[in-house]
Computed example of a mutant assay.
Amino acid sequence: MITYRTDCVPDIATARALYRSCSLGARRPIDDDARFGAMLANANLTVTAWDGDQLVGISRSMTDYGFTTYLADLAVSQTYQRLGIGKELIRLTQAAAPEAKIVLLAAPAAVDYYPHIGFDHHASAWLLSGPLR
């Protein structure tokens, strides 16, 4: 039985194990304790999914609770995918900030997932990865 929590942020080792168990671990600095720890500590809306004491999913967001929620990470362990856990993590994220629109950058492997559950593609998003020119 999967339980969902909004009252805890997993420690680095627990979160690292989850990220390694899915494709998101390859695109996040999970071996840099300072950066990964900051990612976990500074998200102001974290929803987790647990199978007993095992972390099997996380939705890590920054939100103003009024207009925008940036869903930075949605990670579900590979062995727990296709069970509705990701969708429930997003539903609970949305429920915590119901007036805010959820915005995200999809991982390449998840591009087809988000339209399937109701997200619309937005063609005018921009990404700044380096310094301003």
Rank of each mutant, 00 (worst) to 15 (best):
T6K: 15
T6Q: 15
V9R: 13
I12K: 02
A13C: 01
R16Y: 04
L18T: 04
Y19K: 05
Y19E: 06
S21T: 02
S23A: 13
R27Y: 13
R27L: 13
P29R: 06
D31C: 11
R35E: 12
R35A: 15
F36H: 01
G37F: 07
L40P: 04
A41S: 14
A41F: 08
A43I: 08
A43M: 08
A43K: 10
A43Q: 05
N44Y: 07
T46E: 05
G52W: 00
L55N: 01
V56Q: 07
S59Y: 00
R60I: 08
R60Y: 04
S61L: 01
Y70I: 12
A72E: 15
A72M: 14
D73C: 10
L74Y: 00
V76I: 14
S77T: 01
Q78K: 14
Q78M: 07
T79V: 14
Y80A: 05
Q81I: 10
L83S: 07
L83I: 04
I85C: 02
I85Q: 00
I85P: 00
I85Y: 00
G86Q: 05
G86K: 01
K87N: 09
L89C: 08
I90Y: 00
R91H: 08
R91Y: 00
L92V: 05
E99D: 15
K101H: 09
I102Q: 03
V103M: 14
V103S: 06
L105W: 02
A106P: 03
A110K: 06
V111E: 14
Y114V: 07
Y114D: 05
H116R: 15
G118Y: 05
F119K: 07
F119H: 04
H121L: 13
H122T: 08
A123H: 11
A123P: 10
A123I: 04
W126M: 14
L127H: 06
L127C: 09
L128V: 09
G130T: 10
R133T: 11
